[in-house]
Amino acid sequence: MHARLKLFLPLILFGILALFLLRGLSLDPKEMPSALIDKPFPEFSLPALGGDAKLDKASVSGRVALFNVWATWCVSCRVEHPYLTELARQGVAIYGINYKDEDAAALGWLQQLGDPYIANIADREGTLGLDLGVYGAPETYLVDAQGMVRYRHVGVVDERVWTTVLLPLYTQLKGEGEG
C-alpha cells in the first residue's frame, strides 16, 4: 500500500505545482497594494491649482472621496478623464492631485476637457506623491470620512474598475460614515 501510494507522489507534486501556476495566471505582478492602506492620508500643505490658496489635509477630508493623481503629460489620464467627469456628475467626490505638472498646462486641460474635481492640489515637486507612494499616474486613492486611505487603484479608472472594485467599497464606506 505504501509503495503504491509513492507512485502517485510525482502526480501529487505536479498537482500542487499546477495549482500555484494556475493562481499565477490570474495574478498581476504590477498590482501592488499601497503601503498606506488603512493608514491616514499623509499631511501636506500645497497650493491649490491655479491660485495662491493653500490646501492641507483638513481642507480636503471629512467625507468619502477619491483622490486622483493626474498630469497633462500622462496619456492614460486623458483616457480616464471622461469617466471621472461622469462619476463627478453622479455625485462622487473627487479631488485631484496634479502631479509634477505645469500649472498653466493643467488649467488649460481642465478648461478644455472639463473639470470633475472639487479641488486640485498642485503637487509640482511630487512631494505629496512621494508620501503617498505614487509611482506613476494615473493612480486613484479611495479615502474614507476619517481621512484613512482605504484603497489604491493604479491605472485608468473605467466603468469596469468602478463597478467591480471601487463602487462596492465606496458604498460600504459611505454607509460607515453615516452610521
Binding site: 501592488m32 497594494p33 499601497s34 503601503a35 498606506l36 512621494l130 508620501d131 503617498l132 507612494g133 509611482y135
Partner: peptide
Amino acid sequence: MVDRYGEF
C-alpha cells in the same frame, strides 16, 4: 521608503 512603497 518602506513606509511609502511597502516592503516591495
